[in-house]
Computed example of a mutant assay.
Amino acid sequence: MSRRFLTKILTNKETTELDYIQEIDEDKYISIKKSIGIVDEVHNSMDLFLILQNNYNEIANFQETHIEKFIKNINEPLNIHKDDYTRLKIEINRVLQNYLSSVRMFVDHCDANLNRRFGKESAEYLNFKQTLSKFYDNNFEYRFIYKLRNFCQHCGLPVSDFSIDNYQDFITLELNFNSEYLLSEYDSWKADLKKDLIKINGMFSATKVISNHFKIMFLISQKIHSLYEKIFLGALTTLNFHTKEHRDEFELIIVTENNSTTESKNITITKFPFEIIDKFIKGIC
């Protein structure tokens, strides 16, 4: 039979000791574990969005890291070496693939977690699905990026063209999608997207599409945080209530003794998310 204890970790230069404070009954442990699970779930969604944001930043910084270097090596805009352009095209498609994967990962994980946490018929989950539907219906960039990952998986590299403006003192280069190429290579675009691409009829800026799409993803992330806000703060309040009396300079954990005997102890450790508790709980409790 397992026994659980609220425990301090006492450390010095030579040893580490566990100082049991009090035993934790099953009801209290279930409450603590449930609260930690909620905090971990919200923190996981934050981590997934940070991955998405970092991949977006890599695309946003592409102008400085790759395009400007590429332009400096152009002596004659109409005579660009094919190998140089191929390297540039491969690199932008590589970072775009990373962005598309992180978008899908973020949305799919949040969808599954909200469904599991609140239920398929809950107001929170339906609010989330309605938010996605609204952005899909009202924003070409969201519709396009949503399906572009399928294009990449089945057809090839989506950024296929570039355009150059040669001014008197400087040169600009724009990496583009090409609607004619996208339509000819992929026959599974939804009807609304097919109409969008037919209407564009040619090249359109990859940078602008991705920039506008990321702004939408930021709003979706904010919506997800708002759906979790009540139970997230409730979980932090619960964890703070169970631990604040015993917190000091030593680390506080839960130690579970599993089938321990007088001769040996098999233990597992549960850590508290104190960094997050301290960040959000001030002014609330």
Rank of each mutant, 00 (worst) to 15 (best):
C155V: 12
G156I: 08
P158Y: 10
V159Q: 02
V159L: 09
S160L: 03
D161G: 09
I164H: 01
D165P: 00
N166R: 10
Y167N: 15
Y167Q: 14
Y167W: 12
Q168E: 15
F170N: 13
F170Q: 08
I171Y: 04
T172H: 10
T172W: 11
T172A: 11
L173G: 02
L173D: 03
E174M: 06
E174T: 15
L175Y: 11
N176E: 09
N176Q: 11
F177P: 02
F177R: 05
F177G: 03
N178C: 09
N178D: 15
E180C: 05
L182H: 10
L182S: 08
L183E: 06
L183A: 01
L183F: 07
S184E: 14
E185H: 11
E185I: 00
Y186S: 07
D187S: 15
S188Y: 10
S188C: 07
W189E: 03
W189R: 04
W189Q: 08
W189I: 05
A191H: 10
L193G: 04
K194R: 15
K195I: 14
K195T: 15
L197Y: 13
I198F: 02
I200V: 11
I200W: 06
I200P: 05
G202S: 01
M203N: 15
M203L: 07
M203R: 13
S205L: 08
T207D: 14
T207Q: 14
V209S: 10
V209D: 07
I210T: 09
S211G: 12
S211K: 14
H213K: 03
H213R: 05
H213Y: 08
F214T: 09
F214P: 00
K215T: 08
I216M: 07
F218A: 09
F218R: 13
L219T: 12
I224P: 04
L227S: 08
Y228W: 15
Y228Q: 06
K230S: 13
K230C: 02
I231Q: 06
I231A: 00
F232C: 01
L233W: 00
L233D: 08
A235H: 12
A235Y: 09
L236S: 04
L236W: 06
L236F: 07
T237W: 02
T237M: 04
T237Q: 03
N240D: 02
F241N: 12
F241T: 00
T243L: 05
T243N: 02
T243D: 03
K244T: 08
E245V: 10
R247E: 01
R247S: 10
E249Y: 04
E251N: 13
E251K: 15
I253C: 09
I253E: 03
